[in-house]
Each structure stands twice: as structure tokens, then as C-alpha cells.
Amino acid sequence: MRYVIIGSGAVGGSIGGRLHESGRSVVLVARGAHFEALRGNGLRLTVPSGTLTLDVPVVAGPEDVALREDDVLVLAVKTQDSDAALQAWAARPVAGGGTAGERLALVCAQNGVENERRALRLFREVYGMCVVLPGTHLEPGSVVAPCGPYTGALVVGRYGAGPDGTVRRIADDLEKSCFLAPVVADVMRWKYGKLLGNLANAVEALCGSVSDDGAARDLVARATAEGAAVLGAAGIAYASGAEITGLRSGTVEPRPVPGEHTHGSSWQSLARGAGSIETDYLNGEIVLLGRSHGVPTPVNAALQQAARESVRLGRAPGALTAEDLERRIAGAVAS
């Protein structure tokens, strides 16, 4: 198998780098300054044991790689970029005939629960991946993955059907590349559980921190409670926080990396000035389901709106306070 990593940021760079390090065939897909840095200097993957410089092949887009029948496409872009990536790759020809959408496996290594459904419109074989992989990508060519003894826990499963030989081979390669990779029949249950945990991402991005701010922690708790109520009303099963904690306990543990601090993906999007943020598919997913099932979600709605506003105005992480957000929530409820 060869792994084509579409989106080589914190998640894609960590997965691709570790697979390459273990001897698997990998192609990274990146753009702009990140592509130039990877092409010129290789991938700098910093892990607790030090910084690896990995000469991983890199391309700028689908037109630059000749697809093979043994390729696995790993989609690691943010959800707001999924549609463009899926359209760009699905119609690409594969050696021996057919297109990527017809012949190749696609793994959604992404937060949220929307990607697999979108992918299945264009790809026959779609696999979900619940990504528990703290990492940071703030500088071109550089990714920090500060956990050990495993770099991450990647729960994988076929979308809409039971496990097959392909997902087991993918999991085996990941297990040999410093990841935990349990294969499950209900991967979306794990992804909905991770979704609840990701509701905190917007609070961290907007307020700058959660751990040392009691008011911010309260917002996270309320956003999570709304999420659980919505999933309950919708009849959607999800892995508990205890299950996700148990998965990584003693295996995917934060370890100090000198000079590095890990932040969530939404915080990183604001810090990089990426021009978009995935909050619409995290907190926004809860808002959508709440509206569909008659469950109020004022906290998640306020976080979604504030995140969109922060992108539009070019705010840095931490530009708002929990008190600012509380006033927005109160105003929305009053109206």
C-alpha cells in the first residue's frame, strides 16, 4: 500500500511522517509555503524523543501524482475544505483503468461527523478514523506531535459496513508506525464521542485558554451538556468520555517538548490566519441537530457565531473573554 496524505498539517503530517519513518510508502500533499518547505527541507516532525527530518515525497495537488491501484487516500484537511478536495481527487485516473472514486480507499482522518457522508457520494470505499492525536502545525514544514509512547490513537472502521481486509491492513501499518489503531464496526460512534470533546476547541480559540480559566471551563461544560442532550434527542450513540480517556491512558500521554505548547486545531487556525475555521462542523453540528430535534443550543450557537466573526475580522486566539461570550449567550436567549 502507498498512502497519499491529502492535507499535511498536524494530523496528516504526523500520520504521514510516522508511516514513512516505519518504511511505508507515503506521498504528502501540501500547498503554498508548507509545500515549498517540505520540498526543500523535508518534514520536520518533532516528537518527545527529538526532531526527525524526513525526506517524504511531496506534491502540490492531484495532477502531480500518478495514482496506483494499491493507493490509500487519507483525507486530513479540515471539513470546510473537504468538498474541494473530494472533487479534485475522485475523478483522477488510476493505473489499470477507472478513477480514484471507483477504485481507491479513502480514509477520513478528520474531526466532525460530516466528512464520511460527503465522501461516500464520490468514493465507493470510505473509512472513518477517530483521531486522538494532539499535534501542532504553525510553521511551514514543521509538525509537533508531543505524545508518547504512541504518537496517537486512530480508531478506524469502514463507513456504513463492517470491517474488511483493507481497513485491517491500514490498521496493521499504523500499529507498526507508533500508533494505536483499533478496528471497530461502529467508527462513527467513536467520532460522535470525539465531537463532544471537540466542542471545547472554539472556547480555547476564542478565549486563548481553558485549563486556567474557570469561566471558560464552565462554557465548555455547558456546550458539552447541550451536545449530549442533542445526541440523545437524535438517538445517536456516542463513545463516552471515559472510553476515549481509557483508549489513550498510559499510551497517548502528553510529554514535554522543549519550547513547544500544544493547542487545539481551531486555536491554530486563528493563529495561522488560515482564513477559515472548522467550528461550523463541530459546534455547528450540535446547532444543526438541535434545530432539527427541538433542543435549544444557545452556547454552541454563540461559539459558532463568535468563531466565524473572529475569522472574518482576523482576530488572534484569545481576543475574547468568557465574559464576552456569556453576554452574547444571554442576549441570544433574551431575544
Results as ranks from 00 to 15, higher is better:
Ala105Lys: 10
Gly13Met: 05
Arg118Ala: 12
Val65Pro: 02
Asp81Leu: 11
Gly135Leu: 04
Thr46Ile: 03
Leu138Glu: 14
Leu38Glu: 02
Asp81Cys: 12
Asn115Leu: 00
Ala88His: 09
Ala100Pro: 03
Glu116His: 13
Val155Ala: 06
Gly135Tyr: 04
Leu120Val: 12
Gln87Lys: 13
Leu67Trp: 04
Ala119His: 05
Gly13Cys: 07
Thr136Lys: 13
Ala60Ser: 15
Val26Thr: 10
Ala145Gln: 10
Val65Thr: 04
Val132Glu: 10
Glu116Gly: 04
Thr51Trp: 01
Ala95Glu: 15
Ser49Ala: 15
Thr46Val: 04
Glu125His: 14
Gly12Trp: 04
Val113Ser: 08
Leu75His: 04
Arg117Trp: 08
His34Lys: 06
Tyr150Gly: 00
Pro48Asp: 06
Leu38Gln: 02
Gly61Asn: 13
Val126Phe: 03
Val126Gly: 05
Asp81Gln: 15
Gly128Asp: 12
Ser82Gly: 01
Pro48Asn: 12
Val47Lys: 14
Asp64His: 12
Gly135Pro: 07
Ser142Trp: 09
Thr79Phe: 00
Thr99Cys: 10
Val26Leu: 08
Val59Thr: 10
Ser142Cys: 11
Cys147Tyr: 14
Ala30Val: 12
Gly112Gln: 05
Thr99Phe: 05
Gly12Asn: 03
Asp55Met: 02
Gly98Thr: 07
Gly128Thr: 06
Glu114Ser: 15
Leu122Val: 02
Glu69Lys: 08
Thr151Ile: 00
Gly23Phe: 02
Cys108Ser: 08
Cys108Trp: 00
Arg18Cys: 14
Leu45Cys: 12
Thr151Tyr: 07
Val56Asp: 13
Cys147Trp: 05
Tyr150Val: 07
